[in-house]
Nucleic acid binder design. Sequence first.
DNA 1: GGGTCTTGGTTCAAGTTTGAAACAAACCTA
DNA 2: TAGGTTTGTTTCAAACTTGAACCAAGACCC
Lengths: 172, 172
Amino acid sequence: MTTRWLTPEEQRAWRAYVAGYLLLEDAIDRQLQQEAGMPHLYYSILANLSESPERRLRMTDLAESLKITRSRLTYAVTRLEKDALLRREDCRWDKRGSVAVLTEEGMAMLERLAPGHVETVRAGLFDRLTPEQVGQLEEIFTQVVGGFQDDGEALPEELPWRRRSSGCSGSP
Amino acid sequence: MTTRWLTPEEQRAWRAYVAGYLLLEDAIDRQLQQEAGMPHLYYSILANLSESPERRLRMTDLAESLKITRSRLTYAVTRLEKDALLRREDCRWDKRGSVAVLTEEGMAMLERLAPGHVETVRAGLFDRLTPEQVGQLEEIFTQVVGGFQDDGEALPEELPWRRRSSGCSGSP
DNA sequence: GGGTCTTGGTTCAAGTTTGAAACAAACCTA
DNA sequence: TAGGTTTGTTTCAAACTTGAACCAAGACCC
């Protein structure tokens, strides 16, 4: 089959989108870099941990939830651990595994950074959108994310009862 | 003033958006990397040049149009030049300037890559959206981009008649 | 003309990302 | 239970990005 090129509408949308996310990411990265010497992803790691039960998550689950590679996560976590914002612990039920745990310092850092970060996200995005557009944005990207889930796993949750829970909770 | 946190709707939209663009960028990068050993940005540089008059653009204009730093562009252009996909020429009207010019090889490469690239963008994004959503996406990100224009330049086009054209066209 | 400021572009070191390869533990199967 | 496969994670080198510092060359100003 011959290529289905983008329609003019799609082209315009694509260009706007690419320009927009570059500007937005840039603004966010710059803000966090200034405030804490840390890029957006690293903030997201801390934020993600802070919302998990006991503020801990297995590496693979964290990577999956953040949509990044394990290797990328390893590097980031090593750095954050060096900064004492989180620590690694061995998973007691699976000796291969390791879990990242947010430290008190990490939590404090997050609380310090959150207002400025939110402000940047607002200024760059939400303050420019109507409530309807916020809904549209969610809908659009939920569909996008959903699309990739299907691709990756062929049959999502093929064997639900075998899915290991992220596990490794409970204090040491 | 106390922080205006994100509403639940905004939070959901933000999460979906961040996850979505990571997956999308990843898919696009991976596809181009496989096909041509080149990340998305490098493809965009070639594409951008191919659409300019005489397939040439000044570095600064190119950087601005792509929303990236000059330094990042310098690095990318150096690499692409090494691959003979474009070449640098001196700007004759401004001895500081240099222009990137798409070569025949570059154009050929672009034509080879375009179908697969479009297919990836379609599969990841447009095939999952209704025509209305395409319009919404454009609207949303056009507003986002617009927002940043204002920030950067205070008064956009403050002195329109002084705006230098990208210039440096015409064959050597 | 000779400062001074701005603009266009590159360079450099430090930090990050990538994908493939390496490892080790866990799981399976005969 | 030994051998083979899968899974969880790290390591490594190569590529890319970042921001600050730098070097011209234009522009402005007296």
